[in-house]
Design a binder for these strands. Structure first.
Lengths: 244, 244
DNA sequence: TTATTTGATTTGTGATCACACTTGCATTGA
DNA sequence: TCAATGCAAGTGTGATCACAAATCAAATAA
C-alpha cells in the first residue's frame, strides 16, 4: 500500500504537500465569485450559460453547475424564463442585506476580537499601511485593488472567529452585496472621498485591546457607510425621476 | 403577442396562477432537502450520484447538480476523494450551529413578533392543537410528523419576518442541523419526553402580545434543548468509550 | 402605420458517452 | 501466512447531442 508507506516511513514523501486536483467547475465557480464580489457584473444583467462558457473557454457543463451553485446562495437569480441574472438593486433589498450583515459580521468580529493572536493582529495592522500608500497616490484611483484589499482585511478577521458556520454565510452576504458595493465605491470615489480606511484603524485598535464591543461598533459603521451612501443616491435619483 | 394580451385584457387569464415548469433537478433537490432536514440520512453516510439517481428513478445529471447545490450550502460535504457524504457530528460543530441558529433565528422571530397579523397568529395557534392531539395518543410516536409539524411552525413565523436574506440562511441552518436533530428527537422519544411543544406555547403567547424579547428567549430555549440534550448524550458516550 | 403571426435562432435541460481516478478483490510473491 | 502487486468494477467529471421552450425578426394582415 503506497499511501501508508508514504505517510509512515518515506522521508521524501513527508516533505511533499498533497497536490489536490482542481476541477474545471471549481475554477469557473471561483472566477464567477470573484467577478460578483468585485462587482464586475451589473445588477439586472442576464447571464447565459453558453456565453459564459465561451468567455471562460470551456464547455457548458462546468458553467451550468457553477451557476446553479451561485443561484442557491442567492448570488444570482433564476428567472421564471429559466434565464439567470444578477439580482437588481432595490432599497428594500439593500436594507435587508445591511441588517443581515450587521447581525452576522458583527457577531463574527466580536468573536474574533477575543481570539486573534498577535501574529494575526500584525497582519491586519500591516494592511492599514497599504491604504496609506493608496491614499498618498490617490490621483490614480484603483478601485479593483481597493475592493480586493478591503475583502482581504475583513476576511482575515472573520476567519479568526473560529466558526465554520458563520464564515460561509458571510461569504454569501458579500456575494449578494457585491454588485451594490461596487456602485457605492465608484460613487465614493467620484465624491472625492479619500479616507476609506478610517474605521479600519478603529477596528484594529479595538481588536488589539480585545474590546469586542468597540470592534463591533466600528465594523457596523464601516459596512453601513456604503449602504447609506448608495441609499441616499438612489433616493435622490428616484425623486428626480419622479419629478421629471 | 399572446402574453401581453393575457396580462392586459383577458378576464379569465387574470384569475389563473402561473403554472411554473418544475425541472427534474428541482424535484431531486427538494427531495434530498426534505430527506436531510428530516434526518433520513445518517451523519457520515456517503452518497453516490448513480445510487441516488437509481433510487429517484432519473439519470445522473439532475442528481449531480442537486448534490453540487447542497454542497455549497454545507448540507453535504465534498471529500478530497471527490465522493460526497453527509457531514459527521462533532461537539464543536453542534455548538457552532446552535450559536448561529440562536443569532439568526432569534433575530428573525424578533422581527416577526412585531409584524405578524392576526391571521398568521391564528395559523400558528392552531398548530399547537396538533401537538396536543399527538400527545393524547402518544403511544404511537410519529417522529416524521413531529419533525414536519415543528418545521411548519417555525417557518410560518420566520416567513413573517419579511427578510428575503435571513430566510434562506435559516433554511441552510436547518439543512445542516437536520441530521443532528433527528438523532436528538429519537433520544427524546426514548427518554419518555412528551411535552415537546412547551416553548411553542410561550412563543405564540409572546407573539400575540408583540413581545419580541420574550419570543426570542422562548425560541432560544426551544432550539437549545435538543442540542444540549444531544451534547450530553455524546459526552456520556465519549466518556464511556474512553474508559472502555 | 400598427398589430399579429410565423419562422428561425438562441437557450436551458436532460441523457449518454468517454476518460481518469479511486476502491476493492484476487492473484502472486516472499 | 502475510504483504504487495495487478486487475476489474465503480465513480465523478466534462463533452456532446437531442429536445423543448423562449426570444427575436421579418413578413403579413388590418
Amino acid at each position: 500500500m503506497q499511501k501508508a508507506t508514504a505517510e509512515k516511513s518515506d522521508p521524501i514523501a513527508a516533505q511533499l504537500a498533497p497536490v489536490g486536483r482542481e476541477t474545471v467547475q471549481d475554477r469557473v465557480y471561483s472566477e464567477l465569485r470573484r467577478a460578483l464580489i468585485g462587482g464586475l457584473f451589473e445588477p439586472s444583467q442576464v447571464l447565459t450559460i453558453r456565453g459564459l462558457a465561451d468567455a471562460l473557454m470551456t464547455s457548458t457543463m462546468p458553467v451550468r453547475e457553477a451557476l446553479g451553485r451561485l443561484i442557491t446562495e442567492k448570488a444570482l437569480e433564476a428567472l421564471p424564463n429559466r434565464s439567470v441574472r444578477v439580482p437588481p438593486i432595490t432599497l428594500e433589498r439593500m436594507d435587508d442585506l445591511l441588517r443581515a450583515r450587521i447581525l452576522i459580521e458583527g457577531e463574527a468580529i466580536a468573536l474574533a476580537a477575543t481570539r486573534m493572536n498577535s501574529r494575526q493582529i500584525a497582519t491586519i495592522e500591516s494592511m492599514l499601511g497599504e491604504w496609506d500608500e493608496m491614499r498618498a497616490l490617490k490621483h490614480k484611483k484603483d478601485v479593483d485593488r481597493e475592493v480586493t484589499l478591503n475583502q482581504a482585511f475583513h476576511f482575515e478577521i472573520y476567519r479568526a472567529c473560529g466558526s465554520a458556520v458563520l464564515i460561509p454565510m458571510i461569504e454569501s452576504l458579500w456575494l449578494q452585496s457585491g454588485p451594490c458595493i461596487r456602485v457605492a465605491i465608484y460613487a465614493f470615489s467620484d465624491a472625492g472621498e479619500v479616507d476609506t480606511a478610517h474605521y479600519h484603524r478603529t477596528i484594529v485598535k479595538a481588536i488589539a485591546t480585545q474590546d469586542a464591543k468597540e470592534a463591533r461598533d466600528a465594523l457596523v459603521a464601516d459596512i453601513s457607510r456604503p449602504f447609506t451612501f448608495l441609499r441616499n443616491k438612489l433616493e435622490a435619483e428616484a425623486k428626480k425621476g419622479l419629478s421629471a
